[in-house]
Design a protein around this nucleic acid. Structure first.
Lengths: 239, 239
DNA sequence: CATGGCCCCGCTATTTTGGGGGAGTAAGAA
DNA sequence: TTCTTACTCCCCCAAAATAGCGGGGCCATG
């Protein structure tokens, strides 16, 4: 299995390389290694922020951004709802906008075949790792069967490297809440009123209020909703 | 590489097996294959629901549930904030509750060493795949170096199989929020009052209320805090 | 051309939350 | 020891959110 060897070498080189260009370099090497047309890593923030590297042409990337294809692209929309790698054939290309997008993509050198691995992190963070190629269904099927496992693994390792290079996207660690405060925040996050939460915790509503207020101050929150939002997105509570 | 061969065989058997016991069977086979003390798959639902299979003793599992250790367990809390597999040594065990939990866990046969792979799906779904063992740091280091890749891959494949067997946990296609609803939820999550949000969006407070209510109904939320919590943990908004 | 989604606005009444005080115990750290 | 931190309980009152009713217009899909 020289293949696996080689792939690992590429990612190890990546580990010791200094800058962001090395991500681009690595993805190009990986593309050559798999002998496919394109390999793309695409980070999507829910607020529309994007970051990516890959082997699509600059023209296509720019077109994608300016035309705001992110909101149309069935690959993004579809894989956002999926756990597992999705073959492009299994996505919904029926809408008019989707088909226009598809035409445009193929015209710009994107393959007719594709597999996209969705990768998720804390706080709704989301990235895609895509391999795309121009070939027949049968050839593609064979390729996927052979490489699916490696692609999943590489997707996650590549994401890991990408995060190393862009630590700004890493979540920071935070002051913890007391157990009672966690209880309070958790139950509030589940939609219960103060009275219900106090009942559930077998304490007076006034006591509960003290917890909420102290949690609020620890979290620097302006109100209960804010406090719950911060506790959630900082991973201090699990709902 | 007979190892890889064998591992794949186990998961392929799993693919053709009919019931839920086969998950349990597979995880036991995988444990024997890796020659570790424990292997655990642990699903944590957004509403606190849990499901799991693994090789921990029944007593420990029951204790974990009855004592609500989910809210204390540094493995859960820690890996919830991480993208990548975490070695238990790198978690925060400093709090008293954590240490009490750790003592109790080890007393019930959980290993002193562990590696946990966080797995995420759409809508805030979250699962853990953990390997745990009783051994020295050096031995553990070596084991991880050798098997890390395989473990990540297996974690995701196991999760995939688990979802096949329990389609009830498959995400239902949830109605996305409208742009205005997203705006409203986002600003509310940032701690602003309704009046402030209405001001910021340049609409009347009453109109804003309509958005909040429709978002609440789409999300099946009981109040604003609940709605914001769901929107956050389902990845519909980012703060 | 109807249906349903999204966008915008008004009113009143009730319930819930927030902000300001106060006090006492028990456990752990300095 | 003293000091902090977590946990528990109580008051009052103003501000904010919720719940119910109503109205209209725009645009895309079917």
């Amino acid at each position: 299995m020289g293949m696996t060897q080689r792939r690992e070498t590429i990612l190890e080189e990546l580990g010791s390389a200094p800058g962001l260009e090395s991500l681009q370099g690595a993805i190009e090497k990986l593309r050559d290694h798999f002998r496919v047309d394109h390999l793309v890593y695409h980070w999507v923030n829910t607020d529309g922020d994007q970051y990516g590297c890959g082997t699509y042409s600059d023209i296509w990337v720019e077109r994608y951004l300016t035309k705001d294809y992110l909101r149309v692209d069935p690959v993004v929309i579809g894989s956002y709802q999926k756990f597992h790698p999705v073959d492009w054939k299994r996505l919904d290309w029926s809408s008019k906008a989707s088909r226009a997008f598809q035409m445009d993509a193929i015209a710009h050198g994107v393959g007719n075949q594709g597999l996209t691995v969705p990768i998720r992190g804390p706080n709704g963070q989301f990235a895609l790792f895509t391999v795309s190629h121009q070939c027949s269904d049968a050839e593609w099927e064979q390729f996927i069967q052979r490489n699916r496992r490696d692609l999943i693994l590489i997707a996650h390792e590549f994401n890991e490297k990408a995060l190393e290079f862009e630590p700004s996207r890493q979540p920071e660690q935070l002051r913890a809440l007391s157990p009672r405060e966690v209880d309070a925040m958790t139950l509030l996050a589940s939609g219960q009123s103060r009275a219900q939460v106090a009942e559930a915790l077998s304490i007076s509503e006034h006591t509960l209020r003290v917890y909420i207020e102290s949690a609020r101050s620890k979290l620097g929150a302006l109100n209960t909703t804010h406090a719950v939002a911060r506790a959630l997105s900082w991973g201090l509570i699990v709902v």
